[in-house]
Design a protein around this nucleic acid. Sequence first.
DNA 1: ATGTTC
Length: 476
Amino acid sequence: MDINDLKQSSKYSWQLDPRGHMRVPVVIYGDYDLVAAMDDKVLKQATNVAALPGIVTASYAMPDAHWGYGFPIGGVAAFDADQGGVVSAGGVGFDISCGVRTLRTGLKVADLELNKRILANALYEEIPVGVGSTGRIRLDDAQMDAMLAGGAQWAVAQGWGSAADLERIEEHGTMRDALPNEVSARAKTRQRSEMGTLGSGNHYLEIQEVSEVYDQRTAEVFGLHTGDIVVTIHCGSRGLGHQIGTEHLRDMAQAAHRHGIDLPDRELACAPIHSAQGRGYLGAMRAAINCALANREIITHLTRQVFARVLPDAQLELLYDVSHNTCKLEQHAVNGEIRQLYVHRKGATRAFGPGHPELPAVFRDVGQPVLIGGSMGTASHVLAGNAGNDALSFASACHGAGRSMSRRRATKTWRGREVIDELEERGIIVRSPSMRGIAEEAPDAYKDVDAVVNAADRAGLARKVARVIPLVCIKG
DNA sequence: ATGTTC
């Protein structure tokens, strides 16, 4: 984008003041190079979001932002229901509650040396991955509704997970106020056999090594040390979330006029929070959040079974589980006044700072773990929510590296096999059913995750704690 | 992201 259109509001933020239909400014976080390299559509889409009814403070874009459906991916926007505020299916995205969880293993790099390939093969064997993949679990109607209401707590109660994990999951494992009855039969049918599956696209399961620690005190609280082996799982709500997104985008676009909402872009389809349609979407979306939380818990269970067989000394303990495609009702201070706001984070991670009452006691002093997944073959990062970020981004940070090249262009640029061979030479084992998927996900189709994370850190959104590098990647 | 143009 032409960065000259923006005024630099701090060393790592850029602002567009309200004009035209905008009700609030746009604020984009990043250094000069990151913001200048962003597609024009990021600014256009963030500007459109700034025009939606009931938006509060600003329409934000994180340092990894790129253009998406309606809202930018990497977008954060909060709405006040009592001031005509809206909820937007496009503001959450198709992969509802897509997110990341990281597990500590108690292993060091040397423990993996002999078994790395065996482990990679066993994980690839046991964890269903790829488009349309199904698992061994089948849910009947009653079980489906219980899952959609209970999330990871439900999974644990079924024996697929560990009760100790629950406090280390956002919402303590269960998204409240989910409405399974608002989820269509078609969405439920699509999900019936997909519990405990990774999916495709940018989803993955990685075995990683902690390569650097930046914040010793926080890393100690998180239980991370240089040379530690961790497992990170990135996936979402599979066919169910996608179906809910598809249906509600369509319905919201059709009904916007009836609600008196003038959409600057049809893709920004939304409905008043105080409307049957808004309530219906929120209920279904929360059910999809539970689906994603249950899904990641089940995949964790499968992962533990594989480790128990291959490396019985390992103890997989959850560090934390974060979602980065959600709309959540949260309390935020706006100009000194506490307000209840519906915060959309689309490709943005919640990053509650120290002392936040939602956090489990273990993180109370240091802030929430903010898990940033890199692209395949590159580093990932663990950050911690910063005091004061409430005023910067409704306590949000980036979610990953962010694409810099379209999937289509990536498939014309790389062959999957070559990408895998190159990674293999660097000691990274990749297993995937889709060579096209691998080409789409080639490391260079993404921004530099280290630059993105540095910008988030320096902008004050979240602070760097540790960097991890991949050893094994099971890719969708 | 996605039973990958339902």
